[in-house]
Simulated scan of single mutants.
Amino acid sequence: MLTTASSPPPTSTTGRRSCVSSAIVAETVRGSHTLKIDGYSRAKATVRNGRFVQSVLFSAGGHDWVISAASTAKDDVLAEFSFSVLDKYGNPAPGYTCTSNGVRVFSTKGYISWATDKFIKIADFEGSPLITADDRVTIRCDVTVIKGFCPQESEVQRKFVVVPPGNLDRHLGDLFENMDGAYVKFEVGEERFSAHRCVLAARSCVFKAELFGAMKARHGDKPIKVEDMEASVFKSLLHFVYTDSLPEMEDDQLEEHAADVVLVQHFLVAADRYNVERLKLMCEERLCEHIDSDMVASSLALAEQHSCHGLKEACFQFLVSPSNLEKMMASDGFEHLKSSCPSVLKELITS
């Protein structure tokens, strides 16, 4: 179990307190710390129930903090915090974040440990891709300290009920895995996929028109054929529709940087085709972060064809450099860009 505290734990954990809302405006200072647990399986086997793994000290808001240990705070501290399990890209994994649900009082007379009592179920966590192939788990703690206000006894109240973080994405993810009650069938190449009509319609206006609109009569009860898309990409699109996240890619799928970029390009095309805007923007952002001379031509063509204005501007900025422009013109993707998007080359020359 992970805990955060501003004083050593007493023999009793009663009297947990939370600060009620206040009209006082105070300065806030934020800090964070990343805890990496190498050898998760070994740690799980050797750390007995009720014990904990302890981080090093980190500073936030003028106070020292540790995860599952004590701070050197001498006075009461108002703070709010969250714990997030990070994915392979260093981002908080959807559904794996626990927050303090508001400002809490960290006192030399008390000990806060309830915040993570129901962080993650072991079965759910160990069934996720968040434990890396080399048995590593990464957790980030964010602490926001409220400065300039000292809470009094009359300004705090007991915390009798703790509301856990939302887990709708996890439940829908389970639905995606077992497909109970899924009646819609898709045929993509040689593969077939099942899905739930209402989930698809709620997440995509294109799916809604296809499943409830005028297009429904055309398909009847037969599988809907999806042309010009790889089965693996369509499956990842469905995964995002249900969970709001992309599945973790296998190592052999992302052996090279170029393979990663090409895969993201495919995801972007699929997201634009079905008007899944958030996925499209996520892919666009990722491509903006991975522009190089080999891939910039294909990314620029993609940006023009799918109205990705941010990606287009990022490509233009990269090509301001004469050397980058020269390398792009010698790349394999340049001929495709020249034939498919001649207007964008004119715009590039005049910009």
Rank of each mutant, 00 (worst) to 15 (best):
M1I: 12
M1E: 14
M1T: 14
L2K: 08
L2V: 14
T4P: 00
S6L: 04
S7Q: 08
G15L: 09
G15W: 06
R17V: 11
S18A: 09
C19S: 09
S22D: 02
A26S: 13
A26Q: 09
T28S: 08
G31I: 06
L35R: 00
I37Q: 06
Y40W: 15
R42W: 04
K44Y: 08
V47C: 12
R48M: 13
N49W: 02
G50P: 04
G50K: 04
V53C: 05
Q54L: 05
G61W: 07
H63A: 12
W65G: 02
W65E: 03
I67H: 00
A70Q: 13
S71C: 14
S71K: 07
A73D: 05
D75N: 13
V77G: 01
E80Q: 15
V85L: 11
K88P: 00
P94T: 11
G95F: 03
Y96S: 11
T97H: 07
N101C: 12
G102W: 05
K109R: 13
G110R: 06
Y111D: 08
W114Y: 15
W114M: 09
W114F: 14
A115Y: 02
F119N: 09
L130S: 05
T132M: 05
D134C: 11
R136V: 15
R136N: 12
G148W: 07
G148E: 07
C150L: 10
V156P: 01
Q157A: 14
R158G: 14
R158E: 14
F160D: 15
G173W: 01
E177Y: 12
E177A: 14
M179Q: 15
G181P: 05
A182Q: 08
A182P: 04
A195W: 01
A195L: 08
A201I: 08
A201D: 08
R203L: 10
R203P: 02
C205F: 04
C205Y: 03
V206I: 14
A209E: 12
E210F: 02
A214P: 02
M215L: 15
A217C: 12
G220M: 06
K222C: 03
K222Y: 04
P223L: 02
P223A: 10
V226I: 14
A231T: 09
V233I: 15
F234A: 03
L237S: 04
D244N: 15
S245T: 15
M249L: 15
E255Q: 13
A259R: 09
D260A: 12
V261G: 01
V264Q: 02
Q265R: 10
H266K: 14
F267M: 15
D272T: 07
D272R: 06
R273A: 05
Y274C: 07
N275F: 05
E284G: 10
L287P: 00
C288A: 10
E289T: 09
D294P: 00
M295Y: 03
L302M: 07
L302C: 10
L302N: 02
E304A: 03
H306C: 09
H309C: 05
G310K: 13
L311Q: 04
F316T: 05
L319Q: 01
V320L: 10
V320A: 13
S323L: 06
E326T: 14
M329Q: 15
S331C: 10
L337S: 01
V344S: 01
L345N: 01
E347D: 13
I349H: 03
S351Q: 13
